[in-house]
Nucleic acid binder design. Structure first.
Lengths: 346, 346
DNA sequence: TTGAAAGCGATACCAT
DNA sequence: ATGGTATCGCTTTCAA
């Protein structure tokens, strides 16, 4: 059933039905009602493909994120959920594209075949060929995260440098002198992931400024890797009394590794980091952390994208967020653990 | 740029370009190469809307799941990830629809406007108006979960009855005599969520068969509710020594509540349940649980849907899964806790 | 092996 | 206030 059928049954022309639906031209109350009655009766809905072809808009947003090589982190998943929800409020549907690279089939389909009106990108790298591509085509996109040169882009990002530094300061204030960073996997660092890079920067500089002894580690995005990483940290320097994690997926393993080594959190070891709030609250003890406001960021990204779609010539806008540290239960004053003596091995 | 432009530049007709692309009609090597050269040069990709309009297929699957009223559970998110990944392997994109009810705008768009070729539904209710609607329209869909009368449907589901029973048996085998069930929120039970209903059934019957004292609780889908729920359980019957949870999101709070009450897991309290495997491994101690194979289920659902799309007349198929209990670290032999004496209050 | 032209189902311009 | 019709970009039948 199509618009022609409706027109025929209502005894009007197709254009009149179209205008009655869109309201882009006045239609007499009489015919409007006649049309509406037929539509209700037949349960007619205009075909999205035909409409998209005719007016050049799909009413769909693309959400681009790397394929779940291993698994998604809670944070990534929170982004997805919030983007979908926000998009629905603007009557946009969301098309998911598991693409890490410019060359991915799904990414090409999204853009080249014009399946979406605009795109939101996650997991940004400092140099990101996907973004280069989008900019070159002047394709409306908004990034969750920012590249090394974000000035021409639309984005909503986190000040990872400041966040990691705030974690270090928090620990230093509590008297910790030997700390460690649990970063994302080395592969992500090499690929240029911005959070891993900027977080590392912030951690390193803040530790230097506060005169702390600091070591940095790369850790796989899963609990077992977190466990192994903690073992390594305590082996390298048993006097370590605190750590900062940028790696949410490893958190469970980090806690377990600490417990296995006989370090009680927060009595004789403090843990903090940059983690989505709701996941910080699932672990025991609850994590004191710079909460990533995933929900807010997803909403802002959609808001920016819709604005950009409505005003194609608008100047780039962005939001740089620096959420405060939420004090919970995983950090406390520094104490030296008995195992921390020289030559000992936890 | 469109197919006409390509045709002009290659000096052939539009139909020849189309056939060169689809391979549905032989094209001489010579012209094929000529066309391909032009296409590469201009970076041409056929417009998805036009193609969908012409041949009636969108190459898009819909994924329907309830809006994140509160937040998504890890399990739901795992489904989303695995469905997207599996769909990509078949060159389908996935359109997300946050719809809990037949009447949701997004759901209507998906079906009525024919934005997708088929749909995958999550969070199935025993009576589900979305499914009734789909069946009535003979719209190709596959459910993750099953209704009370699933025989005519395509689905991949879990035997929640058996899973809950297996948890009870496991606890009974360890000598536990007084146990509790932490179910999903009452709102979900009232709405008819199949996992909550069938799980409750399985738990209740198995407990009766093994002659256990069992209580059942509804619990909000978040950590704080889990904490409160445990307090309630221990208040109602301090002699309780184990619980089964169908509520993944409450798990963190359950652990915390137990710790706060001075019950050590698994020494003097055992916890088990039905939870997605990777989340069972993030908590400490790791949860002994019937692991929901979310990834496998997502893949199977896509596989079934693709099959159904390719063979519109095929008879309904389904997969009923009963994953075994993975023994981890959260259950142990029953001991009576000192606080469990009559009149005491942990 | 190839071309011409009729759809697919909407929108929107040009008439009346 | 309404109708007729060209148009969006592709697929596919019919002819040659």
């Amino acid at each position: 059933m199509n618009i022609g059928e409706i027109a025929r049954r209502a005894g009007v022309s197709r254009s009149t039905v179209s205008y009655a639906l869109s309201g882009k031209r006045p239609v007499s109350d009489d015919t409007r009602q006649k049309i509406q009655r037929v539509i209700d009766e037949l349960g007619y809905r205009p075909n999205a493909s035909a409409r998209a072809l005719a007016n050049g808009r799909t009413s769909t947003l693309g959400l681009v994120f790397p394929p779940a090589g291993t698994h998604y982190t809670g944070m990534q998943l929170d982004f997805i959920g919030s983007v979908v929800e926000a998009a629905a409020a603007y009557d946009y549907d969301v098309l998911l594209s598991p693409s890490g690279a410019d060359s991915d089939r799904s990414f090409q389909r999204l853009l080249g075949e014009r399946r979406v009106d605009g795109a939101i990108l996650m997991e940004i790298r400092l140099q990101d060929d996907r973004i280069d591509h989008l900019v070159a085509e002047n394709f409306p996109a908004v990034c969750i995260g920012r590249t090394a040169q974000p000035d021409g882009d639309w984005w909503v990002g986190l000040d990872h440098t400041a966040l990691a530094a705030a974690c270090v300061d928090h620990l230093a204030d509590l008297g910790h002198r030997r700390i460690a960073l649990v970063n994302r996997p080395e592969r992500m660092l090499r690929a240029g992931y911005e959070s891993a890079h900027r977080g590392l920067d912030g951690f390193t500089k803040a530790a230097a400024e506060r005169g702390l002894t600091a070591r940095t580690y790369n850790c796989g995005d899963d609990a077992p890797s977190g466990h192994v990483c903690v073992e390594q940290i305590l082996r390298d320097d048993p006097a370590t009394t605190a750590l900062v994690t940028l790696n949410e997926a490893a958190l469970g393993g980090i806690y377990r590794g600490l417990a296995a080594a006989g370090r009680h959190v927060p009595r004789d070891f403090s843990v903090t980091g940059v983690v989505a709030g709701r996941w910080a609250e699932t672990v025991t003890p609850q994590l004191t952390a710079a909460d990533v406001p995933a929900e807010q960021m997803g909403h802002l990204a959609v808001e920016l994208l819709v604005e950009r779609l409505d005003h194609p010539e608008a100047a780039p806008r962005h939001h740089l967020l620096t959420p405060p540290i939420s004090l919970r239960a995983s950090t406390g004053p520094a104490h030296t653990h008995p195992d921390a003596g020289p030559g000992s091995n936890a």
